[in-house]
């Protein structure tokens, strides 16, 4: 087990946070774009003239999907930019280690994810006039936050396989399409063919949607404990693979 130094992880997280402060446009994109997309979702739902269509069933999972997608893509792109710019190699040669780099980025971007999850949940609650209890909102926030952290881990993993920002593009549909069709948001997973039900278990949004549907139906996370625990467990698993695939050189 290689010796890790918390001060290096802290230095890296500090550097990333400074970069976020120095790039207000990036922060605005991360925070505002999800809100804009959610607004468009509301416009779309309002246009659906189908009796018995319950918008609220889709509002929170929809918001979770948007956070998942935006966080995943932005994290992947930022890390690939480090590799392209040569600063990734410079970090390694200066002594930063894989887990410290991953930990530093995760630590810094968790600050962004915390605000992102709060803003989008507040926005969705107001836009769709959800009226849930405080306890329900707290649990929903926790699920969205865990999903955001998992999405960052996924972004870090994907960035290990892309040498340029353009190479990140094919990974977008690889994550987005299964999230939409296999998570249970649109079609119940039990109604999918067997292979679809198996693949669904590899989709982070499958677990998040399961827990969220339980909460908005009046339950708690304790009623869907297994999928709730799956979120941090998947995060740890993905981060482990990311640390093993983050290559230093050639």
């Amino acid at each position: 087990m290689m010796l890790l130094a918390p001060h290096r992880t802290k230095a890296l997280a500090g550097r990333v946070l400074r970069q976020l402060r120095a790039d207000p446009r990036f922060v605005a994109v991360s925070l505002i774009i999800p809100l804009v997309i959610t607004f468009l979702l509301k416009v779309f739902f309002d246009a659906i003239d189908v009796p018995m269509f319950d918008q609220t069933r889709f509002a929170v999972p929809g918001a979770a999907f948007i956070v998942h997608f935006v966080t995943y893509i932005l994290t992947a792109l930022v890390l690939v930019r480090e590799r392209v710019g040569g600063t990734m190699e410079r970090m390694f040669i200066n002594g930063y280690r894989q887990l410290e780099i991953i930990g530093g980025y995760l630590g810094a971007y968790t600050v962004l994810a915390t605000w992102q999850s709060f803003l989008i949940l507040t926005w969705v609650a107001l836009l769709f006039d959800l009226g849930y209890s405080i306890g329900a909102y707290v649990q929903i926030y926790l699920v969205i936050w865990l999903l955001a952290v998992l999405s960052m881990a996924l972004g870090i993993l994907v960035s290990n396989f892309a040498r340029t920002e353009g190479q990140v593009i094919p990974f977008i549909p690889l994550i987005v399409v299964p999230s939409i069709f296999l998570s249970g948001m649109i079609v119940a997973v039990e109604d999918l063919p067997t292979w679809g039900q198996v693949l669904a278990r590899f989709t982070p949004l499958f677990y998040a949607n399961d827990v969220l549907q339980g909460i908005i139906s009046g339950g708690t996370v304790l009623d869907t404990l297994n999928p709730f625990i799956a979120l941090p467990l998947l995060t740890v698993g993905i981060l482990f693979i990311a640390s093993r695939t983050l290559r230093e050189g050639t």
């Binding site: 130094a5 001060h7 290096r8 230095a11 890296l12 550097r15 410079r90 970090m91 200066n94 002594g95 930063y96």
Partner: peptide, 8 residues
């Protein structure tokens, strides 16, 4: 930042 890798 690069110095911090070596100097706590």
């Amino acid at each position: 930042f690069f110095a911090a890798a070596h100097l706590r």
